[in-house]
Structures are given as structure tokens and as C-alpha cells.
Amino acid sequence: MNRPPETQRLFFALWPGAEIREQATQIAQRMLGKRGKCVRSENLHLTLVFLGSTTEQQRACAEAVADTIEGTAFALRLEQIGYWSRPRVVWLAPRETPQPLIELVQQLNQGLTACGYQPEARPYRAHMTLARKVAGYFPAREVAPLACPVEHFYLVRSVSYPGGVEYQVLRSWPLAQ
């Protein structure tokens, strides 16, 4: 009997420094109180491309694609809080997505098609999920900007445990200065 190949749940992401993640956590806690479940500081990130359940062969292909990316470093200003009612999520995002970030996502999506990955049909929306299961309406608002230098992008593994989810950075790629 053939067993299906083992998979890992993977995604490419931006991984802000600990100070930015802690500031984002404080913003979420201050604004939400007990209205939702805040994402743990160590898990805060901005997803670039979600790969989902990935075999070793697909992972190797995705890493080879990432090796070819010619992105440039940029500054990301996280300054807008918003709410998506359907998944009941509060997020932190830039007011405008920087062009180098759009190009990075486009390069990844384009390259990953050779690995069998189907890019999302909807346009990319850079955001950091701050809280889930948020009760009631949460109005959008501006916050003091968090300046986040982006010099690398990362391949991350999502591992589920009874107590929650842990994200493990597997590999990183530098962006040109």
C-alpha cells in the first residue's frame, strides 16, 4: 500500500524584528482588550505567498525559485488598523503597499507556477494579522507608524499544537541593498 508523501504547511513571509512585533502586540492589546484573541508576538508576520501542504519535492522547487528572486530592500510603514468581518480578523497594514513588495510577491507567484502552485486570484494585500475571533464591529483607524526595514524574506513552516500554532523560520533570502 502506497502512503501519501509527508507534507509540511509552508508559506513565504516578511518577518519583522522583535521590537516591531512587540509594538504591534501592544497596539492590539490596547485597542482590543478582551474582544478577540491576539496573535502571539513571536508569530506576527506578513505573508507573501501561502504554499499550504507542501511535499519535500515541492519545497525544494519553491526554494529554488526563491534563490532566483531579484528583489530590493525597502522600508515598510505599518500605519493602518483594519477589520475583516468574515474571518473576524483585525490587521495592521501599510496605507500603500511599497512597489518593491508588490514586485517580490509577483516574482514569487510567477516562479512558483513551475512548482505547481496556483497563485491567488485576488490582489495581494499586505497585512499583519493582530487578532482573530474579534467580537463585534471594529472600525478602521490610523496608528502611529511602525517603521519596518525589510532586508530579507523567509520560508516559514506552520506547526499546529493543541495549545495553538508555532511558526518556524526555515530559511531566509536577502534583498539587494
Rank of each mutant, 00 (worst) to 15 (best):
D67S: 14
T7Y: 05
F50T: 01
L146W: 07
F74M: 03
R9N: 05
A176Y: 08
Q99M: 12
Q118W: 10
V159E: 12
G164H: 11
A140Q: 15
A147L: 15
A126P: 02
E96I: 10
L14A: 04
L146C: 08
G52S: 07
T97S: 03
F11L: 12
Q106L: 15
A62Y: 04
G136D: 11
E19L: 06
Q29M: 11
I69D: 00
P94N: 05
Y167Q: 07
Q168C: 10
A62V: 05
Q80C: 10
A13P: 09
W15I: 01
L48G: 03
P119Y: 12
G71P: 02
P100D: 01
E70C: 10
L155R: 03
P174G: 07
H45D: 01
F138A: 06
G116M: 12
L112A: 09
G71I: 04
P94L: 12
R77D: 03
E151V: 04
Q177E: 13
E22T: 13
A62P: 00
A75C: 10
R122I: 14
L104Y: 04
R88K: 15
F138E: 05
E63L: 12
V90Y: 08
V105Y: 01
I102F: 02
E19Q: 10
P98S: 03
R95K: 13
S172C: 12
S85C: 10
Q110H: 14
H45S: 00
S172I: 05
V143E: 11
A140N: 10
R157V: 03
R157T: 06
Y137T: 07
C115M: 07
E166F: 04
Y137H: 15
V134M: 13
P174C: 08
T54W: 07
Q177S: 13
C148G: 00
S158L: 05
G111P: 08
C115K: 07
P119H: 11
Y137P: 04
M128H: 00
L112Y: 11
W173R: 10
F50V: 05
C148H: 04
Q23K: 09
P119V: 14
E63G: 07
